[in-house]
Design a protein around this nucleic acid. Structure first.
Lengths: 116, 116
DNA sequence: AACGTCTTCAACCCATCGGTTGACAATGCT
DNA sequence: AGCATTGTCAACCGATGGGTTGAAGACGTT
């Protein structure tokens, strides 16, 4: 799967508040589907689906422990997002500083004109 | 609008490859709808819709210049995402380091047993 | 006033999403 | 073997999302 593809899935996965909440809770430690589902009003199946989305995005892995399926957060995927965000944030900020520099120059040359 | 809400919109906005591409291009500088739409196979109206989604997410602002609507990237919203990501990445990493420490301890105590 | 340019609005289509319920698969416990 | 526990699969439903086309709005130009 391409990075583009992965990025789409990761962003889409985190667009849902319930899934963001699941990720948040998983930073506290691994948990089973039942444990994760308990706090929510929705059915267990719905949570199971959410977990599948997170898994397909690579944010989470599910192992086997008898009937249980402990869910584990894969923090590395965050890096992909961070890299994307930082790349464009940087570009944008560079552009602004160039703009600032330009405005400064403009102001300087005007000050010179005023002085002359 | 709550941060939760804003986060959902931002993540959802960036889940689409076309919209990510638009953001990327806007780091090069402001552009009109027509300019932004030109490279894509889709209709201008479709791009206009994408821009509305980006605007509602706060990633972009649109000003007025006669018939044109120059689009401008608002880099600050990236911070909201970065904060969210970093918060949970940190938590996850802290947990891993605690786990590592625990495993180290375990290994040490075993080594002691082996030695005795 | 009439026309061309740039953009949005509105209605529609189809695919996807988040949710439901019901059935079933897999495993532990007696 | 039989039952309870844990979780997934499948089919369905209403809402949303990305796309289309056609019309209209908002300007500058002549």
């Amino acid at each position: 799967m391409s990075d583009e593809d992965r990025l789409s899935r990761v962003f889409a996965a985190l667009a849902d508040p319930t899934r963001r909440d699941l990720v948040a809770r998983l930073t506290e430690g691994d948990a089973t589907v039942g444990e994760l589902a308990a706090p929510y009003a929705v059915s267990l199946q719905a949570v199971s689906k959410h977990l599948k989305v997170l898994e397909d995005a690579g944010l989470v892995t599910r192992t086997k422990d008898a009937q249980r399926r402990p869910v584990h957060l894969e923090a590395e995927v965050f890096d992909l997002m961070t890299r994307w965000i930082e790349r464009y944030r940087q570009r944008a900020e560079e552009r602004y500083s160039r703009l600032d520099a330009l405005l400064d120059e403009l102001q300087d040359s005007r000050a010179e004109e005023d002085a002359s």
